[in-house]
Amino acid sequence: MKKILAATAMTMFFAAGAMAQTNANNTRTELDAFANGDTAVWDMMMDENGMDRDDADFQARWDGATPEQQAALKDACTAAQEAQAKFSDMVASRCKTATGN
């Protein structure tokens, strides 16, 4: 019985890790679609693996972005919000902050 429980726990552990990466990849793909393929827009929020950037990295990238890139991020966030896209809480929060919604 202990072997079955241990095997079940290990399976759930690996499945959760795979699910988290799948969700990150899906988030990146979905967000890129709202940015019309402009990866520079979402590179402000997410790394190449679809993981959320930490606050300091995001702020540095936002501050270094051109006004056009900032506007593109706001437009993509607005479109994603209108479509009720599902993405991480951090990206959702940053979109709300960027758009004022």
Rank of each mutant, 00 (worst) to 15 (best):
D63P: 02
Q70E: 08
V41L: 00
M46A: 03
K86F: 10
A33H: 08
F13L: 14
A85P: 05
A18E: 09
G17T: 15
A85V: 12
T22N: 14
N26M: 15
D47A: 05
F13G: 09
D89K: 05
A18N: 12
L31Y: 07
T11S: 10
A76M: 00
A18S: 11
W62S: 06
E48H: 01
G17S: 15
N26Q: 13
F58M: 02
D38P: 06
T22K: 13
A72F: 03
D75C: 07
G64N: 05
M19A: 12
D38H: 11
K2R: 12
A60W: 00
A71F: 01
A9P: 09
D43C: 10
P67M: 02
M19K: 12
F34G: 02
K3I: 12
K86A: 08
D57N: 11
A40M: 03
M12F: 15
F13Y: 14
A15G: 10
C95N: 09
M12P: 10
A92E: 09
A15T: 13
R53C: 00
P67G: 03
N25H: 14
R53W: 00
K96R: 05
G100C: 08
M46L: 09
A98S: 04
A92K: 06
K86P: 07
T99S: 11
A16N: 13
M44I: 06
F58T: 00
T22V: 14
A72N: 07
L31E: 04
S93A: 15
T66R: 11
A20V: 15
K3V: 14
S93N: 13
L73Y: 01
A35Y: 05
K86D: 14
G37E: 06
N101M: 10
G50K: 00
V41F: 02
K96Y: 09
V91Y: 09
A40C: 02
F58D: 01
A40L: 02
T29R: 11
T11Y: 05
K2M: 13
D32P: 01
K96G: 12
T22F: 14
A98Q: 03
M44S: 06
T99L: 05
A98M: 08
